[in-house]
Design a protein around this nucleic acid. Structure first.
Lengths: 212, 212
DNA sequence: GCAAAAAATGGCATGCGCTGCAAACATACA
DNA sequence: TGTATGTTTGCAGCGCATGCCATTTTTTGC
């Protein structure tokens, strides 16, 4: 038996809590739902809920869908001849063109974005995630380019990449919330990425180009 | 009488609360001081304290020292022949060279930064302020360049400027907190700004150049 | 000057997020 | 079955934040 009864029950309980919370949050807003209500909806006590989730905000953010390694992974997986910035730009364009669920380009995500924008603590979480992503990316860039320890160029480049990455996500959230159609959003965001690429320097766009 | 007794007392009370709060916060940490303690130290009731400040975080951030219009003002005041990005870069370099209090380059600011970094709600405030600054800057850029309504270039340029602006401030906070000397910090930050300028494109650096 | 209006203040009560603690319960293992 | 381990639960409590109401102080109009 690879998984005992106890662990299975724990997973079920955790998911039950998470689903109940998300349902209540999108229906009535993050602030207008108390922890006690979530616990009651999940048929658990408040203490049990806090055994599974450290804080109320943790009930919302799925830790597996948004990894702090996202940018670092994209850059690590880039093609020969491709730079770090272009790899991220390309990945974003791919995801936009495919309307991938990962970027939240789905009609059902509207209330979720609205809820998150209304709760400052949730947006703070997202920003912290972005910071972790750029930090990890800076480490990868420093390692792959063999930059000197005091050289801040990797941090600066990573900062620019992290900036337009979160710019795209923020724009998606705002537009989904405004009721725009995913296809229209994708098109607008692709144009925005073109503007971004035009305003980035050759130095930034070519940094850490993988040898062919 | 330009200022009645009432308004003067209000200002005094407000300042007394603010000073008491800051003193307690830097001494024992933001989280380990209760509102009741601040009120007691300022010799006011808890209710009065909430009449002056909406939330606990408001006790820390002086709304006049950090204006949402800061970036917009800098750009509006730029010299003929100077672009938006270079105006902000120049202003940052000036402030760094003069070790101005405005940028927090003072020895006594160390505990303050440490306290703010330890309290997520405070950093969230700062980030929101940064967002307001870039939004205002984008509006100024759009107006001065006469960009078409659908043109996102002003937003992108403003985003890049806002990015390195907050980069400098964040770095100051981290280094002051680490105990580095203001002079050393200023030097390091000036070098960082050089790296930033090298990695920005000519397009971004020259955007919205004021006619001579 | 004096009374009415406006504003500031303080005390009390409430709701909510969150954290301990000890007891009751369920599971795993011998 | 019995024991050890881990989980759940109710309860009490703290701190932040808000609302209500009475009291005191300041301003305003006469």
């Amino acid at each position: 038996m690879s998984e005992g009864l106890r662990e299975r029950k724990k997973r079920q309980t955790r998911q039950r809590i998470s689903e109940a919370a998300l349902g209540l949050f999108v229906a009535r807003g993050f602030d207008r739902v108390t922890i006690a209500e979530v616990a009651a909806a999940a048929e658990v006590s408040v203490n049990t809920l806090y055994n599974y989730f450290e804080a109320k905000e943790d009930l919302v953010l799925p830790p597996d869908e948004a990894s702090p390694q996202r940018l670092a992974d994209i850059v690590r997986a880039r093609q020969p001849g491709e730079s770090a910035a272009r790899a991220v730009l390309g990945r974003l364009r791919d995801e936009l063109r495919r309307h991938e669920r990962k970027v939240g380009l789905t009609a059902g995500f509207g209330p979720v974005f609205a809820m998150m924008r209304a709760a400052p603590t949730l947006t703070a979480r997202l920003e912290d995630l972005g910071r972790q992503m750029t930090d990890a990316l800076a480490a990868v860039l420093a390692e792959e380019t063999g930059a000197a320890p005091g050289d801040r160029t990797p941090c600066v480049i990573a900062g620019q990449i992290g900036w337009f990455h979160s710019l795209v996500y923020g724009e998606i959230g705002r537009r989904i919330e405004a009721g725009e159609q995913p296809a229209a959003i994708a098109e607008a965001l692709l144009e925005l990425l073109d503007v971004v690429e035009e305003t980035l320097s050759e130095r930034a766009l070519g940094y850490a180009t993988r040898e062919a």
